[in-house]
Design a binder for these strands. Structure first.
Lengths: 179, 179
DNA sequence: AAATGTTTACCTCTAATAGAGATATGTTTT
DNA sequence: AAAACATATCTCTATTAGAGGTAAACATTT
């Protein structure tokens, strides 16, 4: 596991919240960090194994699972140290790949109808994201947890930027409809 | 070159605007699409060669370059067809990897000073992006080009979401300073 | 005019990773 | 009891980010 790989850090981060299985981590990512950090599922299991090999986490079979294998991973003090050192380092530049915007950038070559359809799909999806954020927000404001201010802050980033994107898309749709 | 690879589409898109060298394309990406679509430089040259091999582009040495090799690529009708078909297809889900937000999400484990420092760096960088966008905006509103409405629209997306991110960061900084 | 640094231009390689698929068990529905 | 679905783990390949390397052209200093 080289320095460059960042999959281990989100795993260690999730394990620092609570001991989890690979599947749990996958689900947590989907329901909490996915809009600013996604991880391909196939990465989780090999990276968990590497974390154990490097002493960053331990693994034990879940006693509650009958005969079904369910491995629960727990972060070690060494794992916490590695995580915290990374958290304090200056964040790397972010990476975005937004195919919708790329297609809009080159849209001179496609029909007005297709452009409007792309914009309408984008609006529908951003609205769905916003709804999902608001639901999480309602749940989050009720809990008591030392992580709460940080989870709220990152959620609010999603809400703020999604609202801005939605407004932009609605304006842009009107502009293109008129032209 | 499989269906999955998307590097060829941004290359074909750039070539559909004007014939360019690999270096030109790299620079164009950096100065126009980078905030919603970046490409690793090392991808450009091999993908250009594949485009020529598949009849999507042609290549000729630039006569203006003295003895220095400078290869100018031009899109073919087949390349235009491939590009337009892709542009009309429903855009794939976008991908984001924002290390700053990931670190904020797990920030319970780091000192308040480090969190404030991360936020301040973020604010500085977003302000710089916004300045760069406004400069491009000033240039863009003066030109006459059939691409103009699409370039302006995608630029406005960057301006709108960056402003929202900046406001969010300034609010969040105040909240954390008080707590 | 020589030395130095910077920009332009092209190219290679490796480690990381997205995305798709494979497998198998438990749970719910028909 | 068969079918459909959800949980859980894991493998593989094509793509790709990031870093490195080469060398000519041009600008700046000495």
């Amino acid at each position: 596991m080289s320095e460059r790989s960042r999959t281990k850090y989100i795993i260690l981060g999730m394990l620092s919240i609570e001991p989890s299985s690979g599947y749990d981590i996958t689900q947590s990512i989907k329901s909490s960090t996915a809009y600013f950090w996604s991880e391909s599922e196939g990465q989780i299991y090999p990276t968990l194994a590497k974390c154990v090999a490097n002493g960053l986490a331990t693994c034990k079979e879940d006693p509650e699972s009958n005969n079904r294998t369910r491995k629960i991973y727990t972060i070690t003090p060494k794992g916490e140290k590695v995580l915290n050192e990374w958290l304090e380092k200056k964040p790397q530049e972010s990476l975005v790949r937004n195919e919708f915007l790329l297609k809009l950038f080159f849209a001179k070559n496609i029909s007005k109808e297709k452009i409007l359809a792309h914009l309408e799909t984008f609006i529908r999806e951003e609205k769905a994201s916003l709804d999902a954020f608001e639901k999480i927000n309602k749940q989050l404001i009720q809990i008591e947890d030392p992580h709460k201010p940080y989870w709220l802050a990152s959620l609010n980033y999603g809400i703020a930027t999604t609202k801005a994107a939605l407004e932009w898309a609605q304006n842009t749709l009107q502009v293109f409809k008129k032209s």
